[in-house]
Simulated assay, not measured.
Amino acid sequence: MAGDRLINVAIADDHKIFRDGIRMSLKYRDYIKILWEADDGKHMLHKLKIKTPDILLMDIQMPEINGLHALQLIRKEYEDIKIIIVSMYDDKETITKMMEYGANAYLSKTSDAEEIYKAIISCMNEDFYFNDLVNAAVLLKLQHRRKVRRFYPSSVNFNDKELKILKLITEDKTTEEISENVFLSPRTVETIRQNMKSKVGAKTIAGLVMYAMRNKLVE
């Protein structure tokens, strides 16, 4: 579980009651420490410069700087932070846009404590967390072939080993399961995953998966 080390979590939301709820839900969870809270986008960016969390739970609709703009700013400077969007919006266009801009997961504010914890652990261990909301949004986007801003090159060459690992990633296999399947160490699998992300210009595994599906590298 994330190497059994302490996971520093930050919460950015303009509703104190919601921040309190998340903090209380994570208070007694193993390996979790609430690093700080912020009540608007500007405050959040200021806090990031002082203490950088492993996980950032962030709302979209915030004063000063909204979540979408904040996400873009964060990704330019803090590539390693795992960003989990927690929002009242569940429309597929918003979800897809946030994932394409670099979010590692997208949760509804109706998510229970168990799913929030599960998303945190998944993002730390596997770089992303796909739930029904994200899966449905990505599928609809592919079906309708909507025109979206492209962040990735249109043609990238992957070798056979990379393509096999890519297929296993889209099947939601863990690093350990992939390593057993392709007879490589988990560290080597992780290195290959990072190389594939670099090839297509993706910041997250979600971005890599969407690139693969968009370009028909996997079914």
Rank of each mutant, 00 (worst) to 15 (best):
D59C: 05
E79K: 15
I74C: 01
K49P: 11
P53E: 10
L56E: 08
D54F: 14
I74R: 00
P63R: 00
N66Y: 15
N66W: 15
T52F: 06
D59F: 09
P53N: 03
E79H: 15
I60H: 03
L56Q: 09
E64M: 05
P53A: 05
L68F: 14
P63Q: 00
Q72G: 01
L71E: 11
K76N: 14
E77I: 07
D54P: 13
Y78H: 13
K76F: 13
K49D: 14
Q72M: 02
E77Q: 14
E64G: 00
M62V: 03
I65R: 05
I50E: 15
R75T: 09
L71R: 10
D59R: 00
P53C: 07
I55R: 07
I65L: 08
Y78M: 02
L68P: 01
I60L: 13
I60R: 01
H69G: 00
L57Q: 06
I55L: 05
I74Q: 00
I65K: 04
I50W: 14
I50M: 09
R75G: 07
I60E: 00
K76D: 14
L57E: 06
M58K: 03
L56N: 06
M58N: 04
E64Q: 12
K49Q: 15
E79W: 11
E77L: 09
L73C: 02
L73W: 12
Y78V: 01
T52D: 04
L73F: 11
P53Y: 14
N66M: 13
T52R: 09
I74S: 01
I74A: 02
P63A: 01
K76S: 12
D54G: 06
I60T: 02
T52I: 11
H69C: 01
D59Q: 04
D59A: 00
R75A: 10
Q61K: 10
E64P: 02
L73K: 14
Q72S: 04
K49E: 15
H69S: 06
I50C: 03
K49L: 09
L73Q: 11
Q61H: 09
L57N: 03
N66H: 14
H69F: 05
A70N: 02
Q61A: 04
M58Y: 14
G67A: 02
Y78G: 01
L73P: 07
I65V: 11
E77N: 14
D54H: 15
Q61E: 12
M62E: 08
N66R: 13
M58H: 12
E79L: 12
E77F: 13
L73Y: 13
K51L: 10
I50A: 02
R75W: 15
P63G: 00
A70F: 13
I50L: 12
M58G: 01
Q72L: 08
L68N: 07
I74N: 00
I55K: 07
L68G: 01
E77R: 11
P53L: 03
L73G: 00
L56K: 06
D54E: 14
Y78F: 15
L56W: 13
L68K: 04
L57R: 04
R75M: 11
K49T: 03
E77W: 10
I60V: 08
I50Q: 11
I55W: 14
P63D: 08
R75E: 06
L71G: 05
I55G: 05
I65P: 11
Q61M: 08
I65N: 08
